[in-house]
């Protein structure tokens, strides 16, 4: 009865410190994104001017992303475009998160008709095709950078508002909050000490996961031509231009900026998932 033998080899295998790995991952993603945003100021505008002798070169050591039909360096163009897209995405997602939090909190705490109205607006937004709505709003406010920001900002808050409303309702009906009322705590005290700490992690994760949506939609609007003006190197415009050249064999004009867009969206997605797994006490121990 005293013989001790391991039951499970696989479960005892050495595991590197998961929390450490996640933190490194978060750091790398954040670094990558910050680098992308700041890159235009680092590399300067040189690559944006046409050099006609270097037209249509495939990717090489000198031009990692190749050059376009005017001899412009695609790497500089893509980075400039990506940086702009990220900045617009951040701004739009930030505004969206503010609207979402405000309305979600209002719906959850005030209840009654406020809740009904907010839920109704959310339902309306959900029932309309997202891209159509984006195009309509961007068009209605006159297009351009402002148009894109407004359109993206006012259409992305709904899912976050819904999550926050649900969280607030859940916490509000929990035994411990109701007990807090019976202990004589005021609604404001309860909101500050019970609600806010509960909602902030949700907000943070929701905000991070909003970025990729906002960026993709900004790119989509520019792609179809109602976003930024054509001479600004936005990622959507670069991709739209490349369409005309893809059939002629200049694959790098679309593939390389596309990969860059994919990479940054994925980085945000990964960042959000990992921040979530760290903040959630249920998964943070694994």
């Amino acid at each position: 009865m005293t013989v001790t033998s391991p039951i499970s080899k696989p479960m005892q295998r050495f595991r590197s410190n998961r929390r450490q790995r996640i933190l490194w991952g978060i750091a790398w993603c954040a670094l990558l994104l910050v680098a992308m945003i700041l890159s235009p100021w680092v590399i300067g505008d040189d690559g944006l001017s046409p050099v006609l002798v270097q037209r249509n070169q495939p990717p090489s050591l000198v031009h990692a992303f190749g050059t376009d039909w005017l001899g412009r360096d695609m790497l500089s163009r893509s980075l400039h475009g990506m940086s702009l897209s990220l900045r617009i995405g951040l701004l739009a997602a930030g505004i969206s998160a503010l609207i979402g939090t405000g309305l979600g909190l209002a719906a959850g705490t005030l209840g009654g008709w406020v809740d009904a109205v907010v839920t109704w607006i959310i339902d309306v937004f959900f029932s309309l095709p997202h891209l159509v709505l984006l195009i309509l709003i961007a068009f209605a406010v006159g297009g351009g950078t402002t148009g894109v920001i407004i359109a993206v900002a006012v259409t992305h808050w709904t899912s976050l508002a819904r999550v926050i409303r649900a969280e607030v309702l859940q916490v509000n009906s929990s035994d411990y909050v109701r007990l807090s009322y019976r202990f004589g705590r005021s609604p404001i005290w309860i909101a500050r000490h019970h609600m806010v700490p509960h909602v902030i992690p949700q907000l943070l994760v929701g905000l991070i996961l909003l970025f990729p949506h906002a960026i993709l939609h900004e790119a989509a609007l520019s792609f179809i031509g109602i976003g930024l003006s054509p001479h600004i190197p936005a990622i959507g415009i670069i991709l739209a231009e490349s369409m005309r050249h893809l059939s002629t064999g200049y694959w790098w004009l679309g593939v390389m900026p596309g990969l860059l867009l994919l990479l940054s969206v994925k980085a945000f997605d990964w960042l959000g998932e990992n921040v979530r797994s760290l903040l959630d006490p249920k998964t943070s121990q694994g």
């Binding site: 013989v3 001790t4 033998s5 391991p6 039951i7 499970s8 479960m11 005892q12 121990q285 694994g286």
Partner: peptide, 11 residues
């Protein structure tokens, strides 16, 4: 059991 558990002994 969650992943961060290790077993010893015999079952």
């Amino acid at each position: 059991l969650p992943d961060n558990a290790q077993l010893s002994g015999t079952m």
